[in-house]
Amino acid sequence: MSEEARRDRAERILDAAAELMLRHGYKRVTMEDVARAAGVGKGTVYLHWRTKEALFRALLLRESEQMLSGLLTKLRQDSELALPWRLMRILALEVVRRPLLRALFVADSDALIGFAENEAVRREKQLELAPETRYLELLVERRVLRGDLGFEEAAYLMSVIVRGFFLAERTGEEFGPDLERRADLMADAIRLTMAAEKALGPDDTEALAAGTITVFGRTVEAVRSELSSAYA
């Protein structure tokens, strides 16, 4: 079988796994179910992923890669998107609009019950947080944030605001504003509480964007490398 055919088969298996997990939840889905939905034998699924946990980790990695790749494209088109209030707005909207990532970060679904606490997903969350750590370091280095905010304080404040957004998304529609407006309000909270008094000039903004692209680009490369092992 050609490399392209193996990749197409792996993608078909992941598509089937995504649909089943969102419909029935992680606990109820078996490898046999995935194989049947993908139109392959159970042994074929095991050729790509040795365990159910590895399969669903790959599914979340694929979602993350697609989200971050889209972010990189936007950053290359508009350097001001690297500013934290604009970047976090984009990421928050992307997470909420992607059912699997929403289930993981917003936790408004039982789709990942039985999976979200295991080691595979803890590693996935760490992978998601790794670029954010370096990005925050960039913000401090480039003096994008208030001068009295060190790295740990900036990380804490950013976490409070962004996690608060996801927590509120469990019942967000009850508050009145639509999703876009809720994301705007979160972005305003970041800007008003964290931004330096002096705005970045064009050259500094370009430098921030270049650094941000490098940080998230490395994460995308790492994710693609891990996924490729299942496609080979």
Rank of each mutant, 00 (worst) to 15 (best):
E3N: 09
A5Q: 13
R7H: 11
R7A: 13
R9E: 14
A10P: 01
E11S: 11
E11H: 13
E11G: 02
A18V: 00
E19K: 11
M21K: 01
H24Y: 11
Y26C: 00
Y26P: 01
K27N: 08
T30C: 02
E32L: 10
E32M: 10
V34F: 07
V34L: 05
A35M: 05
R36A: 14
R36T: 10
A37L: 01
V40S: 03
T44C: 10
L47H: 15
H48D: 10
H48L: 06
W49T: 06
R50T: 11
E53W: 06
L59S: 10
L61W: 11
R62W: 06
E63H: 09
S64G: 04
E65G: 08
Q66V: 13
L68D: 12
G70R: 09
L71S: 01
T73R: 13
K74Y: 00
R76K: 15
E80D: 10
L81I: 08
L81E: 02
A82D: 00
A82R: 00
P84D: 07
R89Y: 01
R89H: 08
L91A: 08
A92R: 06
L93T: 09
L93E: 15
L93Q: 15
E94W: 03
V96W: 04
V96H: 04
L101A: 05
R102H: 09
V106C: 04
V106R: 04
D110C: 03
D110W: 07
L112A: 03
L112W: 08
G114P: 06
G114N: 07
G114F: 03
A116R: 13
A116T: 05
E117R: 12
N118D: 14
N118Q: 11
V121Q: 09
V121A: 07
V121W: 06
K125S: 07
K125R: 14
Q126S: 11
L129D: 12
L129A: 15
P131C: 02
E132W: 14
T133K: 13
L136H: 12
E137P: 00
E141Q: 14
R142T: 03
R142Y: 00
R143Q: 14
R143P: 00
R146C: 06
R146N: 03
R146D: 03
G147M: 04
D148Y: 08
F151L: 15
F151T: 02
A155T: 03
A155I: 02
A155V: 01
M158S: 11
S159Q: 10
V160R: 12
V160L: 15
I161E: 05
R163F: 08
G164Y: 09
G164C: 09
F165M: 04
A168E: 15
E169H: 06
G176E: 05
D178E: 15
E180Y: 09
E180D: 15
R181L: 13
D184V: 07
L185K: 03
M186L: 14
A187V: 04
A187N: 04
L192T: 12
A196V: 02
E197C: 01
E197L: 12
E197Q: 14
K198E: 15
L200D: 00
A207P: 01
L208Y: 03
A209Q: 02
A209P: 01
A210K: 13
A210S: 12
G211N: 02
T212R: 05
T212E: 07
I213R: 13
T214S: 08
T214Y: 10
V215M: 04
F216A: 04
G217V: 05
T219E: 12
V223G: 05
S225T: 13
S228K: 14
S228D: 15
A230M: 07
